[in-house]
């Protein structure tokens, strides 16, 4: 008699996510991608306005731990109606800080479906995929999808030009 082969139980891989709102719309992000969450009020005095560039979604930078973070307005990025942001997410592995309306909750996702291929425009850069959660479907954002390489280059150039201008102005004032 042959011994029964034990069946492999498929354990879904769970991932901790933060559910948050931008422009009233619900999104998810892996909690591992968020380095820090801060209140907007705590940025008063430490954020710097940057000159107008073609990257309309970024108007400010925040200098933290020797790194410049570009503050992305999520409503402009996603083309949503403007809402008042109350929190800012400092994201890992990208110089992006994201303005959000607020956090809905932290939860676990066990299934992430890649974005259907019929979605064939910028959203492919925005989302890792979609997850069904509590009778709804939530897009899971890509942290590196908020600013493209071209946008980062434009912003870096604008910030460096502004820095040089300020330095020159200061030197002029001392003379």
């Amino acid at each position: 008699m042959q011994a029964a082969v034990p069946s492999k139980a498929r354990t879904p891989r769970a991932e901790q996510i933060i559910l948050f709102r931008v422009g009233g719309q619900l999104f998810a992000i892996s909690s591992a991608s968020v380095q820090e969450v801060r209140s907007i009020d705590s940025l008063t005095g430490i954020s710097q306005e940057i000159p107008t560039t073609s990257v309309r979604k970024v108007r400010h930078t925040v200098r933290r731990n020797e790194q410049t973070h570009y503050v992305v307005n999520g409503t402009v990025h996603f083309g949503l109606p403007a809402t008042a942001a109350s929190l800012i997410f400092f994201l890992r592995h990208t110089p992006t800080a994201l303005l959000v309306d607020g956090i809905e909750k932290m939860t676990t996702m066990t299934y992430l479906q890649s974005l259907p291929q019929a979605f064939c425009h910028e959203e492919r850069d925005w989302y890792r995929g979609l997850t069904p959660l509590d009778q709804t479907v939530v897009p899971v954002v890509k942290p590196e999808g908020f600013l493209s390489t071209e946008e980062l280059t434009l912003l870096d150039t604008a910030v460096q030009a502004e820095f040089k201008k300020k330095k020159a102005d200061t030197a002029e004032a001392h003379e």
């Binding site: 719309q25 996603f78 479907v137």
Partner: peptide, 8 residues
């Protein structure tokens, strides 16, 4: 129908 921002 579940809607979310996209450009398609």
């Amino acid at each position: 129908v579940f809607r979310f921002p996209h450009r398609t």
